[in-house]
């Protein structure tokens, strides 16, 4: 059992080992929807929400798999249960709270099998977090993802106005920006110990 302090788990997941900038998880939506600040914010919210759902799912599945001693089913059961739970939540949300659905809903199908979500489930299992720590870890990872996305969107909105050589435009420029962001996040190393 891992007995790290809750706040240090949060800081670690959000800043020091940011999912996007240190683990490269969820890079596809990171480049895909980081062109505008508004969409980046909504996407960040949706990912944080799905991470929370996935974290709770993964924790329960892991209890079950430990009980029946079948660790080799972990990968397949995680991905199926997480994907179907998110689908279920999406349906519930559409029925119960159409306003939230309109804000976050369109991104949900995109991220059900996102590497950031699945990575979170795997990492919390590898580190043997208990229930509250898993939830805190998911919240931290979600906040970190949203932060990285919003920062990136801010830079890219400015980049649109700059005079960038044709050759570098697009993915290459976005990669360099992400590299510089990632380098600046290295400054957080050692925080929260």
């Amino acid at each position: 059992m891992n007995d790290a302090a809750h706040w240090s788990i949060f800081v670690e997941a959000a800043l020091i080992n940011n999912f996007v900038l240190a683990y490269f998880l969820g890079i596809c939506p990171f480049f895909g929807v980081s062109a505008k600040l508004e969409t980046a914010l909504r996407m960040g919210g949706a990912v944080s929400f799905v991470m929370l759902v996935a974290s709770v799912c993964a924790f329960s599945i892991n209890l079950l798999l430990d009980a029946v001693a079948a660790p080799y089913l972990r990968i397949i059961s995680y991905i199926l249960v997480i994907a179907s739970t998110v689908q279920l939540v999406e349906m519930l949300m559409r029925k119960l709270s159409p306003a939230t659905f309109r804000a976050l809903g369109i991104y949900l199908p995109l991220i059900t099998t996102n590497c950031a979500i699945f990575g979170l489930a795997l990492f919390q299992t590898n580190r043997e977090y208990d229930f509250t720590r898993s939830v805190v870890y998911a919240l931290g990872a979600g906040a970190g993802f949203a932060l990285a996305l919003v920062l990136m969107a801010g830079v890219r909105e400015k980049l649109d106005l700059a005079n960038v050589p044709q050759l570098v435009k697009g993915t290459a420029a976005a990669l360099v920006v992400a590299g510089i962001l990632s380098m600046s996040f290295m400054g957080f190393a050692g925080l929260g110990r």
Binding site: L21, A22, L175, V176, G179, M186
Partner: peptide, 24 residues
């Protein structure tokens, strides 16, 4: 910096530039 995460972004950007240049 190249073994750290940010190096991954830079190395990939570098190769993308090379590929783009050849294609161009």
């Amino acid at each position: 910096v190249m073994v750290l995460p940010s190096g991954g972004f830079f190395a990939m950007a570098l190769w993308l530039l090379v590929v783009n240049r050849i294609k161009e």
